[in-house]
Design a protein around this nucleic acid. Structure first.
Length: 330
DNA sequence: GTTCTAGAAC
DNA sequence: GTTCTAGAAC
């Protein structure tokens, strides 16, 4: 194909101006100026460099200015570059001037590309409402969210919800890594652990209470061990508390990354996150945490090292049998 | 996050 | 030859 399948736009969440077209693989430099309507002196005239990749569905964001540009509350850093996915929030500078990116099917029927400098208010007649960062399942192909934003849609789906109150919702993990595996998500959007502040403490404590409640209502709770905690570096956006039974008996547990993400310090206990927040006012992930995923497979119960995933699964069966013997004997 | 599959490991 | 892992995905 000669043309990318979709076009990419940068959308002001404050609707201070019309969306800015980000042509496929072309660098667009933005900052203080008429295009963004930003007049803030803290914002460089060349604050960010954006390069959309329409085939891969993300935008590379490079912070050119000295003051912080952030994606989902995480600072990019001067001269550094991060990926911006649909559904994530870009702040041009100092947590101000929020933007999202949108990939849409190339309208084709439009004779000319969307030209934001054009005075013609009619523009493309198809110009959709661009406020919602999560695509509406009913509107189909207007925009395509990146897979990492999938939890935002799942938590809103009544068919996925197994518990909800005014603060949180619980869904079953779509690919459970054990016999019981739930996710507790707050209704408010907290993109990642890095965005947590001490004001979130009570919410996290509530999430823990709901996690405990899920375990209590589980018919096999007394026969199983459970842990609740967060992945240090999750793949999916939107803070989520894993509540998972410690049998790890599931066909969806397939590789070393799966195993180590729940059985090494990559898995941070809910209490530890709350404690960190209370003492430091933020959550810090130790350097080298991502390397924990590459550690050899090691049984979480007896520390025996196993060479492969099938060998590990076979080994886990011996612990089930031992546990059944003790529970039958008592 | 998953799926797919080339090629490493056995 | 088969099993299994690990990296790309347009």
């Amino acid at each position: 194909m000669f043309f990318p399948m979709s076009i990419c736009q940068l959308v002001s969440q404050e609707e201070t101006h019309k969306p800015i077209l980000l042509p496929h693989l072309e660098s667009v430099i933005l900052g203080r100026g008429p295009q963004t309507t930003i007049k803030d002196k803290k914002c460089s005239r060349e604050q960010v460099e954006l390069k959309a990749d329409c085939s891969k569905g993300f935008v590379k964001v490079k912070q050119l200015g000295a003051n912080p540009t952030s994606v989902d509350s995480v600072v990019v850093g001067h001269g550094k570059e991060v990926k911006l996915m649909p559904g994530q929030l870009l702040h041009i500078v100092n947590d101000l001037y929020p933007y999202t990116v949108q990939f849409k099917e190339d309208p084709g029927s439009c004779k000319r590309p969307l030209d934001v400098s054009s005075k013609d208010e009619e523009g493309c007649p198809e110009a959709p409402s661009l406020k919602c960062p999560v695509p509406d399942v009913h509107s189909g192909k207007q925009s395509v969210a990146h897979w990492s934003q999938g939890l935002k849609a799942s938590m809103q789906d009544p068919n996925m919800q197994v518990f909800k109150d005014d603060k949180v919702v619980v869904i079953k993990d779509k690919y459970p890594k054990a016999r019981y595996h739930w996710l507790v998500l707050p209704w408010i959007s907290i993109p990642s652990l890095k965005a947590l502040r001490d004001e979130h403490c009570s919410l996290l404590k509530h999430m823990q209470k709901v996690a405990d409640h899920m375990v209590q209502q589980c018919p096999h709770a007394s026969a199983l061990d459970f842990r609740s905690g967060y992945h240090a570096i999750p793949s999916m956006s939107h803070v989520h508390l894993h509540v998972i039974s410690q049998d790890f008996d599931s066909p969806c547990l397939k590789n070393k990354k799966h195993w180590n993400s729940f059985t090494t310090d990559y898995f941070i206990e809910s209490q530890d996150v709350i404690h960190m927040l209370e003492t430091d006012g933020k959550v810090t992930v130790k350097e080298g945490t991502s390397e924990l995923l590459k550690l050899p497979l090691c049984c979480h119960l007896c520390r025996k090292e196993l060479p492969t995933i099938p060998a590990l699964k076979q080994h886990l069966k011996s612990h089930f049998l031992a546990k059944n013997r003790t529970s039958n004997a008592s």
